[in-house]
């Protein structure tokens, strides 16, 4: 047989042309080529003959009738494999789990993106030092402040979370509204807030409020002395170093492992759902 130089695309066009499944432009091009390309014309004729041969086959007659009876229907329903009912349940569950892992994947990515956009440690430190000045007007709080009075402060802390400046440890007055009667002019910084900045970035308002206030209160009680505050400031610098090392090393590896895990699980369950769909059909 003559070696054909026609491509698969050529045969595809000829085949579709035989069935009238080409558009007007293709039809014109094929007819032009049939006129001047003998090899193309020969391929056309051979495919035409093959197609005609296949179409010339008469339909067979069924050896019997396949009429259904209620008994047959009942028998087929009772003999249905329990795997199919299990598969029918597993299919939507797998799809849901796949979507869940996809959402986790996205959230993890999103939260990582927000962490990346946080200011470098130098900025935080600078803001940390400026914070007492900026928040000074809000400091004097009358002793005996109730929890309700404190709420606006908590809100302001929480609502400014997306702004990196708000992550800097806020200036906390002696009383802090929580420790009644302990107010004083010795405004003390809350040094332990800084290491939690990453957590705060992701936490909702209520969580931040709930997390910060009790701790700050404890810190206030513990660090009224100015000297102690300085000590804490130096310890903060140390913790920054630790944090920097952690975020660039372990945190990134952990994040990456989580992403891979979530992605893998999402794909796995999606694949499972698709396979079960095919089994079901």
């Amino acid at each position: 047989m003559m070696k054909s130089s026609l491509s698969n695309r050529d045969y595809e066009l000829i085949s579709a042309y035989l069935d009238g499944e080409v558009d007007a432009r293709q039809k014109k091009a094929i007819e032009m080529r049939l006129g001047h390309d003998p090899q193309f014309k020969s391929a056309y004729e051979q495919l035409w003959q093959t197609r005609w041969l296949l179409r010339s086959q008469a339909a067979l007659r069924a050896p019997r009738n396949y009429l259904l009876s209620p008994k047959m229907i009942a028998a087929s329903q009772t003999s249905a494999s329990p795997f199919f009912s299990f598969a029918a349940l597993l299919r939507p569950v797998s799809a849901l789990v796949s979507i869940l892992f996809l959402i986790l994947f996205g959230l993890n990515w999103f939260s990582a993106g927000r962490m990346m956009s946080a200011p470098p440690m130098e900025n935080s430190k600078m803001l940390y030092q400026q914070a007492p000045v900026e928040m000074a007007p809000a400091q004097p709080t009358p002793s005996g402040t109730t929890a309700e009075d404190e709420q606006p402060m908590a809100k302001s802390m929480a609502t400014t979370v997306p702004n990196p400046q708000a992550i800097a440890p806020p200036m906390i007055e002696g009383g802090g509204g929580m420790g009644a009667g302990e107010g004083g002019e010795g405004a003390v910084e809350a040094p332990l807030l800084e290491p939690y900045s990453a957590t705060l970035l992701m936490a909702p308002t209520e969580t931040i409020t709930a997390t910060l206030l009790p701790e700050t209160t404890e810190e206030i009680v513990a660090s009224q002395d100015q000297t102690e505050a300085e000590t804490l400031q130096s310890s903060l610098a140390e913790s920054e170093e630790t944090e920097t090392g952690f975020s660039s090393g372990q945190a990134q590896t952990g994040w990456l492992i989580k992403q891979v895990l979530f992605g893998f699980l999402a794909i796995f369950f999606a694949f499972l759902a698709i396979r079960l769909r095919k089994v079901g059909s």
Binding site: M2, N8, A16, S42, L47, Q49
Partner: peptide
């Protein structure tokens, strides 16, 4: 479909002697 027809065409060449005259391919 195009690939299936092409394969059928090549396969039927191997059964040349089985095919009636009117079904034999030209070349």
């Amino acid at each position: 479909l195009a690939r299936a027809r092409l394969r059928m065409q090549h396969c039927l060449q191997a059964y040349w002697e089985l095919l009636p005259e009117k079904f034999r391919l030209k070349d």
